[in-house]
Write a protein that binds this DNA or RNA. Structure first.
Lengths: 219, 219
DNA sequence: GTCTATACTTGGATAGAC
DNA sequence: GTCTATCCAAGTATAGAC
């Protein structure tokens, strides 16, 4: 039986501790997205989490390990939503629509930016690159299965092998995000997605695939 | 007439000074490409240039200004070569070939990496992003005129408006570079360029354009 | 578990000798 | 113009009080 004493009751204290952990991860994501890898110091992150800087090291051991935890959080949080979206895409047009809405969501939430910062920032820290690559693998797999799913049974599959198409799509996400950060504006990226949809639709029509109707009225 | 004295003869001394300036710029490029923005400190760059760290500030005022000078150097050094390459591309296939050889050259020399590092790194330094954007504008203009040139008179021009196509191409360069740094390997990027060429060729054939023969034997 | 204080390191930037 | 020495700010990480 638990003996009485100062109120360090296990459930409560564990919950509070986990709260801080979560707050630090959320702050790390926010910091990566707003200040970049170079700006993501223990002090800056702790300030955003409204806790002491020492807790970064208590909970995660090092700043880089916290950043990797943030990357994990971003991955798992989005992966489910994306898997669902992508499963619905059974045509090239559908794939283009899915890619577009994923891009918009992630652009607004800053998640793609987190990936971009981690990929480039990791290059200046020996050994970090590999750990980032591991965490990105599921995203790349998802992109590849999305392409496979969208092209299943389409003659376009011969023109667009899934591995290369997936690689190009992932690269496109990252590159468009970079240009959007540079411009402080994502309208050009959105225009590219719009155009991609038209081309996708053309591919579907040529292949005789039943094509989803446009969501917007682009006559 | 110049009076005799300690050998600080103007021509020689100015030449030596310019040598150091150039060495610092070359070292900055190398450092950005190999250690990234976060690793590009005045001390690290000076060490690679085999001179004292103080000279960074004497010649450039600040590290960031040196990095911008490095970006300028990369831009001007490549722009001429690219303009020539791109002027020769008068079909979509030709454009794909030009893009491919530019990518390979820049990947090996690390120039794209310099751009990627500057774009992302600049986000953590207030005001630097704008200055990077200015320097990137000519590249984006070049891409756009390349597209215009390649599509001149082709029916594909209606499908691929130059601004959007150019934006996508630039984004593709950056994204493929990022994935190549992540993988430590550019074979996947090269495969994408190979596939892009096939698709470009298909576009040209459909449009009835005279298509350059393949350089490699892809039957 | 959390905070404050502090040791230690690295990096930007300047001063002064040569 | 270049180097050495140095100052100062910011960052990582740890120690010890609570």
């Amino acid at each position: 039986m638990a003996k009485a004493g100062p109120r360090t009751e296990s459930g409560t204290s564990r919950a509070r501790s986990a709260d801080v952990r979560d707050a630090l991860i959320a702050a790390a994501i926010e910091t990566l997205a707003q200040a970049g890898f170079a700006g993501a110091s223990a002090r800056e992150i702790a300030a955003r989490a409204s806790c002491s800087q020492g807790l970064v090291f208590y909970h995660f051991g090092s700043v880089n390990d916290l950043l990797l935890a943030a990357l994990d959080e971003v991955s798992t949080r989005r992966m489910d939503a994306y898997r669902r979206l992508v499963a619905e895409a059974t045509s090239v047009t559908g794939l283009a629509d899915a890619a577009r809405s994923i891009f918009i969501e992630d652009l607004n939430s800053g998640y793609v930016r987190v990936l971009v910062e981690m990929i480039t920032g990791a290059q200046s820290v020996p050994g970090l690159g590999e750990r980032v690559a591991e965490r990105l693998a599921p995203w790349r797999d998802l992109a590849e299965s999305a392409v496979r799913n969208a092209l299943r049974g389409s003659p376009a599959a011969r023109l667009l092998p899934a591995p290369e198409a997936a690689h190009a799509i992932v690269a496109g996400f990252f590159g468009l995000e970079m240009l959007a950060m540079l411009d402080g504006d994502s309208s050009a990226a959105l225009a590219v997605f719009g155009r991609a949809r038209s081309l996708a639709r053309l591919l579907d029509v040529l292949a005789g695939v039943k094509v989803p109707r446009s969501r917007r009225n682009d006559r």
